[in-house]
């Protein structure tokens, strides 16, 4: 995690030193992301909150309130279950340590609307729709079962932008979001997570 923070800091300093344009129309947001599984069928597979996630978006300012663009998130979910005996379909008993993992990557067309155009705190709401790339990996002991899926994805979020200085296009943002992908595979009906993000906004041009 320390390595992650240093990488984030270096990336931000690098970008912040690049000259600003007068009229910032395109903005990049880079966020750290934590995700908690919500639905019972998903929690049966993994119930632990993931603190291994990132989010990036590039949004175009249509006007001072509305911006649209593309958002990509990535979360690595993992939970290890101690050795248990499971009844198999063929009647045999299988004893194993299960390591359930999932890498969830929603790629969304995103829109955000800010209620306040200026000031230190600029709250906004957002919504997105697109596709999620799901890498399902279950280790039975050390033996891997893996499947990849692409499913529809939807997101709704609420957050606040905080400029570093008054009127600056640079700033930080804190947000929370609800993400949903109908799944109906591997015993999981819905992949849905409640996420919390924190990161920075950087003008591109």
């Amino acid at each position: 995690m320390k390595q992650l923070r240093i990488t984030f800091f270096i990336a931000f300093i690098f970008l912040a030193t690049i000259s600003e344009a007068q009229q910032q129309r395109l903005n990049l947001a880079l966020n750290y992301n934590a995700a908690t599984p919500v639905s019972s069928s998903f929690k049966n597979y993994i119930s632990k909150t993931s603190f291994r996630g990132f989010q990036g978006s590039v949004l175009y300012n249509i006007n001072t309130s509305l911006r649209v663009g593309l958002q990509v998130s990535w979360n690595d979910l993992y939970e290890k279950y101690g050795r248990q005996v499971y009844k198999n379909e063929d009647g045999s008993d299988i004893s194993a340590v299960l390591s359930n993992t999932m890498q969830y990557t929603p790629v969304l067309v995103k829109a955000e609307y800010s209620f306040v155009k200026e000031g230190w705190l600029q709250p906004y709401v957002g919504a997105g729709a697109g596709i999620s790339l799901i890498n399902f990996e279950q280790y039975i002991g050390e033996f891997l079962y893996r499947q990849s899926y692409a499913k529809a994805a939807f997101s709704a979020d609420l957050g606040v932008l905080i400029p570093f200085t008054k009127g600056s296009p640079y700033g930080c943002r804190i947000s929370t979001s609800y993400n949903l992908s109908p799944f109906n595979k591997e015993g999981i009906k819905t992949i849905n997570t409640w996420d919390v993000q924190a990161g920075v906004v950087i003008p591109l041009k």
Partner: peptide, 8 residues
């Protein structure tokens, strides 16, 4: 933990 046991 990597070892798997199956009985029938």
């Amino acid at each position: 933990e990597g070892i798997v046991y199956v009985t029938d």
